[in-house]
Amino acid sequence: MMRSAIIAVMCLCMALNAARSSAQEAEATPPPNLPPPTVVTPPLPPMETVEADISTRSLEVTTGFTGHEIVVFGAIDNSQAPKDDAGSYYDVVVVVEGTPFPIVARRKSEVAGVWMNTWSITFNSVPSYYAIASSKPIEEIAGPAVLERHAIGFRHIKMMPAGNSGVGLKDSQLAAFRSAVIRLKHRQDLYVLEPEGVDFVGRSLFRSTIALPANIPVGPLVARTYLFRDGEVVSAHIARVTLHRAGIERLVHNFAFVYPASYGLIAVIIAVLSGLLASMLFRRKTA
């Protein structure tokens, strides 16, 4: 009797650990359900899981695009929070990330009285957009190790210098470049921090409004939603939204990049025709 009870408790612990670590490592796959315990001794409440979605699946960037607000909303399944107070029991962090792109960061220095770019470093992949909304400041939610593991927060954005780029730079100089990239992106509204951006509704629902600026690069956005309890991720969920060009905007941009020669030729024709048209219009007026 004693032995079987110990085995049952060990099984439970292992299953729990497996579920937690899988939730932490691979957000893409929802955590597998707990296998039913073989022996039903002390009844454990089922694990909480989080499910989330975005208010829209695809967004069109047209010539009238001035940015857009998306709502990431979701629910905590099996919430153990007291009624109307999920916030005291759980924390939710929503990270919306754009496609990573290589970027070049440059640093100016004064050379012969003129400020010019003298140092540069190429980062292999930097998220084009990175918004983080949380139910309270992330430093209060979890320790740096947990945040680093899930790339939550500006400090933990994955950003590696490319190949031989940055060779000969000290760690402190590299860090200065890194923080400059984040500062500049933040100033362009492309990196957004909303420390109180997630609101709980009742004991299991939450929502978060995230502003996409007009200068957001087109492409897919991934929204990762993390459910925290006692400083650990208990569940995670992924949703996607895609920004794509549409209308005249799409036509012009695609044309310019796919058929640059024809695009250039048409630009020349447009310029010549509009110049001639203008002179005709005004000559008729003055004549």
Binding site: Y263, G264, I266, V268, S274
Partner: peptide, 29 residues
């Protein structure tokens, strides 16, 4: 020369914005 430059800029640098140019042309005229 401007016609050739526009063409070359479009091909080499992809830096000709027709929408921007049209607005400026209308205002400028």
């Amino acid at each position: 020369v401007m016609a050739v430059t526009t063409l070359l800029q479009a091909i080499e640098n992809k830096s000709v914005d027709v929408v921007l140019a049209l607005i400026l042309i209308v205002g400028g005229v």
